[in-house]
Design a protein around this nucleic acid. Structure first.
Lengths: 174, 174
DNA sequence: GTTTTTCTATAGTGACCACTACAAAAAAAT
DNA sequence: ATTTTTTTGTAGTGGTCACTATAGAAAAAC
């Protein structure tokens, strides 16, 4: 997971993935079927863990604005990463990949994440849920890209705080 | 330029670039020196043309809030692209590239663009210029990523309009 | 202890990568 | 018209990619 997260799907080879796991290519293919097979598992584990900042924010309760603000703050804390694993694996892991299978897997994970945010927002603002979900998703994509380009936690948190205010303002009615 | 923009630096080969230009590999290397050499030229042409939405927005005049709002609106109109060339070449062209030279070239272009925005914002809000520039850059990165993932012009313009309001609010003093 | 089965390592598959040596053709110069 | 220079196409360089055939080692069954 670390390698995919740090360098993206295409830039890491099967031999290197095997070395990280302590296995050789034949065992790799016996275990995962293909490079994309491991990527799919990796995405699943990633989205099921602490990287799902929206799920974590929602678990603590609160109204829509509170949960979204907490989501952005958690993303700002998470995205700088460590050991080169910056940004979000789902949002940027298959960016510019030449492999359509990897793109499709990441795309499905993104759609799932966006749908969860959209449906949650819809509980308070059903007719503006799409627009507000786009605002949140675009913000998270931007924060992930900025983190990948070296933005540290302080800068991301500053942006997250401004976006929290923006979201509250938009939610409460233009 | 079209190929780099549509698929990213790594995913397009020299043979294919030559075919697009109507030349064979040896002529390609005589003309550009290397694949990264063409990428550098491509970035320069891109940033010197209509893709530099901030320069275009600034050329029309107005105060900081007006120019930034116009910048975001122009980006929303440009980023959906055509023929697969979605998003911004500078912001996403070398994303996840395995070639450090391509990354460095894109990085330099990004820093240049951010500095221009920052310095412009500093003419009205010198002590908040960094934070506000981050807000603008993160927004544009997010819009570029969203466009690459298939967001159409309508959705991007909706986000741009909300971000315009957010920027105005932040600029006028939290 | 012998046999059978499962696993894994070595080594290599063809395909594609950025890049180039070389020779033929076109252009320029004398 | 001949020579020199530049340009270009053919073909191939070593390297790396995802992926696999085969054979030997470990483990399980009897």
């Amino acid at each position: 997971m670390r390698l995919f997260h740090a360098r993206g799907y295409d830039a890491v080879g099967v031999a290197e993935l095997g070395a990280e796991l302590g296995i050789k290519p034949p065992s790799f293919y016996a275990a995962f079927g293909s490079k994309a097979g491991l990527f799919e598992r990796t995405l699943r584990r990633y989205a099921a863990g602490e990287a799902n900042v929206f799920a974590r924010a929602r678990a603590e309760g609160g109204d829509v604005a509170t949960v979204i603000g907490r989501t952005l703050a958690l993303a700002a804390a998470l995205y700088p990463g460590q050991g080169g694993t910056a940004g979000c694996l789902v949002l940027d892991g298959a960016r510019n990949s030449a492999d359509p299978e990897a793109q499709a897997l990441a795309d499905a994970a993104k759609r799932e994440g966006r749908a969860a945010v959209r449906d949650f927002i819809a509980t308070e603002a059903p007719d503006r849920a799409d627009a507000l979900a786009d605002l949140v998703v675009v913000t998270m994509m931007g924060m992930s890209a900025a983190a990948r380009d070296g933005a540290d936690r302080g800068r991301l948190e500053r942006v997250a705080a401004m976006m929290d205010r923006a979201f509250r303002r938009e939610l409460s009615g233009a």
